[in-house]
Computed example of a mutant assay.
Amino acid sequence: MNSTWIATPITADLLRGALDLQRTARGVLPHRLPAWARAQCTDGQLTMVEAQPAGVRLAFRTRATAVELDTLPTRQTYPGLPSRPVGVYDLIVDGHLTDQASVTGGDTVTIDMTTGTAEHRSGPPGTIRFTGLPDRMKNIEIWLPHNETTELVALRTDAPVTPAPQSGRRVWLHHGSSISQGSNAASPTATWPAVAASLGGVELVNLGLGGSALLDPFTARTMRDTPADLISVKIGVNLTNTDLMRLRAFTPAVHGFLDTIRDGHPSTPLLVVSPIYCPIHEDTPGPGAFDLAALATGQLRFRATGDPAERASGKLTLGVIRDELARITAQRAAGDPNLHHLDGLDLYGEADFAELPLPDQLHPDTASHRRIAERFAKQAFAPHGPFAE
């Protein structure tokens, strides 16, 4: 180690976008749900994704020209499926993307989809290095990978570090599915919420939870208790592809979710966003499943396994959910002028799918994330939009 390095303890005041910081044997682990919420659900999918730090970034001020960060990623592998991309760290200097890096090493969890078993293998931490930074006082953000659990082990710089000052920008709290978490985006600042936050000039707290946007009461209470100037919830695709509930349960669950948020944010602009276009679930209920024919050719794709006729018995499709969310928000808006609705088809619709198809039939690629973000920013942050200054 360079003798000029200064080690700075990684504490909560150096982090943005995390709601909890857990001390581990090797460092600290950022969480996007607080400990009390995690204790209410031990579902493995939720446990994995809430610890994947989408939107979480180290934020500090320094004149350092070199930065090192030791981290311990946990990566999932699935025998028979294509390898998942390695997480990327984005370096932002005074608001501009300046460099990117990834780490080697880390822990591996091998999940056998046929048996449901998982094997955990421990590995060493890795190090990312950013050098040649401008020799002046500057604000630095290191955005952590949105797609892999990341323990923070050590931060070293060649000049002292202080927590970044509060920007004074409004805080945008967003909840959604894996699309909001950033699935298939190339890097953490390329996810659609991160891009939209940059375009809107706001600070992002991303509660996009892959496979876990399921109207859970503990998520609503977390949002209720989290300081925010702007709030959005993107509801629908996980409820369809998990086949978790029927229309009879969906409607009061949406009301209850919004009621809970309003308990803590009675007049905050609150935007309800319905699902983007996804052909496999537009008119066909879940559950969703891997497309085994595609897997046989080395491709990862999803399919819907339900029967369209089951809509009559209350099974949810994206079309059913869009109609019901529009009706619910119109009903509630009569007494809540700060509640707004955005049709997900206005962010990514059938014509967009024809031009920029979903690579796995479920998640947008990086180009589509940007398109969704630009359209969201144009509608939400516009002078007469629900998130206007």
Rank of each mutant, 00 (worst) to 15 (best):
H175C: 08
G201D: 10
I179C: 08
I6Y: 04
G210T: 01
L230M: 03
G335W: 01
A7T: 14
Q52A: 11
D307L: 01
F376L: 15
G349C: 11
I111C: 11
V103S: 09
A326T: 04
T110S: 15
A51C: 06
E374N: 09
Q76N: 14
D70F: 05
P188G: 12
R322G: 12
E282A: 13
R32K: 09
T297C: 09
P252F: 07
R38F: 00
A312R: 15
A377P: 05
D135E: 11
R75P: 11
D70W: 13
Q45P: 06
I235K: 11
D243H: 12
E350S: 13
R57V: 01
R370A: 13
V153A: 04
D99N: 10
G27D: 05
V233S: 13
T74L: 14
D112I: 11
L155H: 00
F250A: 08
S232G: 06
D158L: 01
T47L: 12
I235V: 13
T222Y: 05
D346V: 09
F257C: 06
G335K: 09
T162K: 04
T366M: 07
F387T: 01
V273H: 14
L339I: 09
Q361Y: 15
A354F: 11
R75I: 08
F60N: 00
L347R: 12
T150E: 03
G286D: 06
L271Y: 08
L356M: 14
A293V: 10
G87S: 02
V320K: 09
L207I: 04
T114P: 09
G126C: 06
I142T: 00
L207S: 07
M137P: 09
A296P: 00
W5A: 15
L69W: 13
T329I: 06
A197D: 09
H281V: 13
T191G: 05
L173Y: 07
I276F: 14
R322F: 11
F257W: 08
L14C: 00
M1F: 12
L292R: 12
E203Q: 12
A380Y: 03
A309L: 04
T251I: 15
H363D: 04
S198V: 13
G132N: 01
V88Y: 03
L91F: 01
D216A: 15
V56P: 00
P134I: 02
P9E: 12
L69R: 06
S368Y: 05
P337I: 03
H341W: 12
V109N: 08
V161W: 00
I235E: 10
G27I: 04
W5V: 09
Y78I: 14
E203S: 10
F130S: 01
Q299M: 10
G126A: 07
R26P: 02
P125C: 03
T260A: 04
H96C: 07
A154K: 11
E119V: 14
S183I: 09
G123A: 12
H363T: 00
F290E: 08
T242G: 10
S212N: 15
P266D: 01
T317C: 02
M137S: 14
I261P: 05
G298Y: 00
T297R: 15
R23D: 12
I321W: 10
L292I: 13
H31M: 10
P364A: 06
R221E: 15
A351S: 15
A296M: 03
